[in-house]
Structure formats: C-alpha cells, structure tokens
Nucleic acid binder design. Structure first.
Lengths: 195, 195
DNA sequence: TATTTTCTTTACCATTCGGTCAACAAAAAC
DNA sequence: GTTTTTGTTGACCGAATGGTAAAGAAAATA
C-alpha cells in the first residue's frame, strides 16, 4: 500500500540517546540529532513527534537499560557484599567505557530542572527509587544470610550507597581520576565490612 | 572627570549568581540576566566583558562562599564526628534554604561538559579537592584524638563522604524528600560510628 | 502498470540567542 | 558653566534555535 521506512527505529533511538546522554536535552540541537542519526529533521518529526517526545523515548530506553543492568548484576552475585561491590565497580566502568559518552543521562536530566515536565521527572525519580529498592533488598538478604547483624539499617545504608554512586558519577564528570573513584569504592566496602 | 556607576558590582554578581545557580550557564539567557540584575545588557558587557566572564566571576564567588562555609563549619566543631555531622546537615539545609535556588552551581557546571573551558573546569575541580582535603584533615584530627582507630582510612572515607554529599544534592534535585536525605545522613553517621 | 499511501527532502518560518554600536545622559574636573 | 569622560540606553546584527509545509520519491496493492 505505501512506502516503507528505510531506517530502524531502535537504531535511531540509540543514536539519539547517545547525543542526549552526551550533552543533555537542551544543548542537543536538532542539527546535532540530524547529524547523529543520519535522518532529516522532518523525518525525525514524522517518526517521533518532536524533540521532547524523542527525548522521552531515549530516556525511557536508558532507564530500562540501567535498571536491567542493575538487576542482572545484583542477581548474579553470590553474596550481598559481592552484589554491592559489583554494582559500584560497574558504575565506575560505565563512566569510562569508551563506547559510551560517560556520565549519566538521568543525573543530567535531574539537574536540567526547568527543561522538563512532570512525566520526565517521574522517569528520573523512578530510576533512583529502583536503585535504592534493589540495594536495600540485597542488604536485607545479606542480613538473612548473616553477612550483616540483625539490627542493620538496610534502608539507610541503601540510600547512602545510592547517593554515593551518584556522587561518584559527579566526581567523574568533574574529571576526577579513576584512582579517586576506586579509592571511594574501597572505602565504602571497608565501611560496610566494619559492621 | 566622568560619570560614576549607579549600581553595586557585588550586588549584580550576587543576582547573576542566583540566576546561573538556578538554571546553569547555557540556559540562563542575557534576557534573564537583564531582568534579574536590572541592568541593560550593554551595561553588563561594559562592566563584565561578556556572558562567559560574568559567569566565571559568579562561579568564583560561589566557590569562595562554599569553601568559607565549609571551613567555618568544620573549624567550629568540637570533634571530628561533629564536624562531619554539621557539614552533612548544612548540605541538606543548603538545598532547602528558601533564599537560595537549591542544588549546587558547581555540580551543575561539572555536568555542563561542553559549555565550559579549562579554567572553569579547574574552578569546579578545586571545590571538590578542597572539600575532600578538609574532610580528610578533620578525620585525621579525629584519629589523633582517638575518635577513630589508628589504621583508619582517612583519605578514602573523606572521598566517600565528599561523593555522598554530591549524591545527596543530586537526590534533592531529583525531588527526593527531606526525610530521604536525613536517612542518608543518619546512615553515614552510623557507618562512621561502626569503626 | 497505475494508483495510492507513506516516507523523505528542500526550503522556509518566527523566535531567540549572544553580542555590538551609535546616540544620549550624567557626573567630576576645570 | 563648559568640557571631558564614562555609564546607560535602545535599536540592531547575523547566527542558530525548534518546528512546519509542500513537493517529490518509493514501495505495496490493485
């Protein structure tokens, strides 16, 4: 009946995600998106509506990927400590992965306050909530396994670990050397060992 | 000999700082600066050069204020634990202070990667370095005082605390409730007590 | 092959961006 | 009060912004 698309929507989303991830929503222009995706701007609008809805699709993709990564890493760990360790190490590797822009689109979007509507803010908050919940569950399993004492403040420590991962990303964005991030990682693990 | 300025440079800097602090460098337009400072854009250029150099003056002002606040808070504390406690509580209050935009200009600027030159990045990095150094000194004094054991990893823990403060600011920017930040604060203090 | 429907392209739109310039206003020095 | 120098003003600049409309190209159906 009609002409077919000559691009893969997922490929375009990945390319656009890469751009937003690098510069944030506001600083990524339609010109950037045209170059980065290889699509004409009218094709982008035809396929995705407008810049904002394209961004939301990318953000949803990103949030889903990170959540899946977190679930997979913590699920594969043999102990609570190993789960936390592997998650922190992943956060460091994640930033320095050369195939990736570095930093974190969700943190970037959280800081771009006035650019985003409630729906976007909710997606951002959902990743932080998910991270906190998963880490808390990991710690609670550690308590059950005897890795941590009975009165261990799983909720609080999960919040602290979640905050620390965001802080490590900020450090990395401020050009902190890998060694500084690794030092933070070791200190967190040691504080966790302390009780 | 000539006409005098009819504005106070420091007042203008404070007003501009407030704007940059709210939206970041790129999202703050000259129109915003005109409205926020009450100055015509040509007057701004006459007094401060251009948008970038005005921003740098504001950033320097901000960095100096935060450093002074950190020094004052830690200097006034009677113990190492109290110093850390008061600094973390200040970070929370700082965000929810109604006279202030909330968030942190330095973190915001660290995330605005492609907007800034080396000089700006250096100012950003200098605040993080300063914070880490001060907290480390505070912990080392705690070791001397017997608050922490001899082998205590002051450098690592100082890095972790610094990362956590940045993470708390990110959490707050993502609309986390005060209670969540306070929970992180309590967990950090308890982890510190654990050893 | 002709038709129909969608995708793609080019050119364009109004608006906003940071920045500038020339005219004007005011205050200190004489 | 005149002169001189600086601050202030408003109009203006080219470039870039997100977004759109209409024409052209291609593929599946008939």
């Amino acid at each position: 009946m009609a002409r077919t698309r000559n691009f893969d929507e997922n490929q375009i989303l990945e390319a656009a995600l890469h751009l937003f991830w690098e510069k944030g929503y506001a600083a990524t222009s339609l010109h950037d998106l045209e170059k980065g995706t290889g699509l004409n701007r009218a094709s982008i609008y035809n396929a995705f509506g407008n810049k904002r809805s394209l961004f939301k699709r990318c953000l949803a993709l990103y949030v889903g990927q990170v959540k899946a990564m977190l679930d997979s890493i913590t699920g594969a760990a043999a102990s609570s400590r190993e789960a936390v360790k592997n998650w922190l190490l992943f956060v460091i590797d994640f930033h320095f992965n050369p195939e990736t822009p570095g930093g974190c689109l969700v943190i970037l979007s959280a800081l771009e306050r006035y650019q985003h509507d409630q729906e976007t803010k909710e997606m951002v908050a959902s990743l932080f909530r998910h991270e906190r919940k998963v880490v808390q569950r990991v710690l609670e399993e550690g308590v059950q396994r005897g890795e941590f004492p009975a009165g261990f403040d799983c909720a609080g420590v999960a919040g602290a670990i979640t905050a620390t991962t965001s802080g490590m990303v900020v450090m990395a964005m401020a050009d902190a050397p890998v060694s500084a991030l690794q030092e933070v990682f070791r200190a967190v693990m040691r504080l966790l060992d302390g009780k």
